[in-house]
């Protein structure tokens, strides 16, 4: 079932492709980048920046790459809640893996485990897989439909991942896409592991 939804999510132009909100978001980010890299606040340079940003947004519109995946504006608030938790997890995993490396006899138990990604959209799966890779001790090596194959360095890293906490949080992160991007509803029980 999840694979059907994933296939639809890939082939349907979600959100109609072009949306003004995403274009504005892209333009704002690009203009902030311009200000950051130039550092001069002179009228000539600012107007040149505006022209460049408008040009780039127009090209991106022509390339049809402005969509909810490139600029996930619907995730902003919940992503800000997700990042602190992820940072704490990264620090804990770092201490664990560093402790395993510096032992005289390395206490590593490399293993390959498979975890199920319960996210509905590809964007959610990408966020989940990248979170796994960003946490030291676990590296995503392949994705097969909704099964993520993970190489885990230590036993504790594998256990932490298999508890499914990160999976639940990422699913909650992308839980409520905007109305026009809503995939067909899952049957009850389709989401449970």
């Amino acid at each position: 079932m999840a694979s059907v939804i994933r296939a639809k999510a890939r082939f349907l132009p979600l959100g109609g492709g072009w949306s003004l909100l995403h274009a504005l978001s892209l333009g704002l980010v690009l203009f902030c980048l311009w200000l950051l890299l130039s550092g001069f606040f002179v009228t000539l340079l600012l107007s040149l920046g505006v022209v460049s940003v408008a040009f780039v947004v127009w090209i991106a519109h022509r390339m049809d790459v402005i969509d909810h995946e490139g600029h996930p504006t619907h995730l902003t608030i919940r992503a800000l809640l997700y990042w602190p938790w992820l940072i704490v997890e990264i620090i804990k995993a770092n201490i664990n893996v560093a402790g395993a490396i510096v032992r005289r006899r390395m206490s590593v138990n490399p293993s390959v485990i498979e975890v199920k990604a319960t996210q509905e959209t590809e964007l959610g799966q990408v966020i989940y897989a990248n979170s796994i890779t960003l946490t030291p001790g676990t590296v995503t090596i392949d994705i097969d439909k909704d099964i993520i194959i993970v190489h885990a360095l230590t036993l504790k890293a594998a256990e932490d991942l298999e508890s499914g906490d990160m999976d639940r949080r990422v699913t909650a992160l992308e839980a409520h896409p905007p109305a026009e991007e809503l995939p067909p509803p899952l049957p009850p029980g389709g989401q449970t592991k």
């Binding site: 990264i90 620090i91 770092n94 893996v97 560093a98 490396i101 510096v102 390395m106 590593v108 490399p110 890779t133 960003l134 946490t135 030291p136 001790g137 590296v139 090596i141 190489h151 360095l153």
Partner: peptide
């Protein structure tokens, strides 16, 4: 400290998939 530990990990760990964890320590922490 974390950089040096990650570098040691990249030298000591047994295979390429394990060494990625060392590189991960260098990158993040």
């Amino acid at each position: 400290m974390m950089l040096i530990i990650g570098g040691i990990g990249m030298v000591r760990l047994p295979d390429v998939f394990s060494r990625m964890h060392g590189a991960g320590i260098i990158d993040t922490m």
